[in-house]
């Protein structure tokens, strides 16, 4: 029995936890390779054309699993935080994977509802483990291990390595930002321009939550809430010189949160914010030009080094 996991979407958040769960059960796991242009093209061809870029990437990865594995693991992530919801795309991801192509491997879709404080969703994982042929004891051990890993994972924030004199906040979904093909090597490009990219997972969830709670209406998408909190944290503490808001074309929550952040940051007077929209046609040249312009602007406007409280206030409204 070989179980495949597509290296896309929430694999970039919880992949390690899922892998360890499968390893505890002693199931052979195959993770699809890093995204290539081929994978992206195949995903674009097969997925509905109105899907957002990450879903197309995910579809491409599903086709990578074809003929290589017996089952595909696509957990249904319902929420990542108490009182919030995941994006509808995550909610329907297993259903989408099942209707892509009849030749694809069967989909295992245990529910993962991290917002459920009673953790009732682990029953689903237990059943999955049993269906994979694990004994009661090892299934229970795997489920406990999964819970522990997730709890540890939630408290961590990634440590950053300084690669330049200036910090740039890259606010975007981790599956876009950490996938070099999808983001066209955005992080490396920022590093090459003598700046340090900070991503959303560099900021503690608790700090992000604190700032997200200051908004006039709570954001009820789990990740977007964290993202908005992170951006507000960066902007209010002036810990970055500029913020890149990276979203993918047709990303629903991104469109709402983007509009919200532009308005909110415009009112508060924040560090400069630039929006980059990724899609399957995004080309390197366009990205590099905009990135260079943004970083040069930050350097020469005299705001390169982050001065606490000293950054000039952006006029209200700001460029749209």
């Amino acid at each position: 029995m070989r179980v495949g996991i597509p290296r896309a979407m929430l694999y970039h958040h919880y992949g390690e936890c899922w892998l360890e769960f499968m390893e505890t059960l002693g199931v052979e796991v195959f993770v699809s390779d890093y995204t290539t242009s081929d994978i992206l093209t195949r995903g674009t061809v097969h997925a509905d054309n109105e899907n957002c870029l990450p879903v197309k990437v995910f579809s491409g990865h599903m086709f990578e699993l074809k003929d290589r594995v017996d089952l595909a693991l696509v957990p249904r992530v319902v929420s990542e935080e108490y009182g919030t919801w995941a994006c509808p795309k995550f909610l329907g991801l297993p259903d989408l994977a099942r209707s892509l192509d009849p030749d694809l491997p069967d989909v295992l879709a245990p529910v993962m509802d991290l917002g459920d404080r009673r953790c009732l969703w682990v029953k689903d994982w237990y059943r999955t483990a049993r269906a994979l042929g694990a004994s009661r004891l090892s299934a229970a051990a795997a489920v406990t291990g999964l819970l522990e890993n997730l709890a540890r994972h939630r408290l961590q924030s990634r440590a950053h390595v300084d690669t330049g004199d200036m910090k740039i906040g890259v606010a975007g979904h981790l599956y876009n930002v950490h996938d070099p093909r999808v983001s066209l090597g955005l992080l490396d490009r920022i590093r090459a321009m003598d700046a340090t990219p900070l991503t959303v997972d560099h900021v503690l969830r608790s700090r992000a939550r604190y700032h997200a709670n200051t908004l006039s209406r709570k954001i009820f998408w789990s990740f977007e809430s964290r993202l908005a909190g992170t951006v507000l944290n960066w902007s209010r503490s002036r810990s970055v010189a500029g913020i890149l808001f990276v979203t993918s074309f047709a990303c629903g929550p991104g469109s709402m949160v983007g509009a919200l952040l532009e308005d909110q940051l415009g009112r508060e007077g924040s560090v400069p914010l630039m929006t980059i929209t990724l899609d399957e046609h995004a080309a390197e040249a366009g990205l590099v030009t905009r990135l260079e312009a943004f970083i040069d602007m930050l350097r020469y406007s005299g705001r390169a080094d982050t001065r606490v409280g000293g950054a000039a206030v952006r006029a209200g409204g700001g460029p749209r």
Binding site: C52, C87, G252
Partner: peptide, 10 residues
């Protein structure tokens, strides 16, 4: 690009 309906349509 309606979120739920795109899944429904798939």
């Amino acid at each position: 690009a309606c979120l739920p309906e795109v899944i429904a349509r798939t």
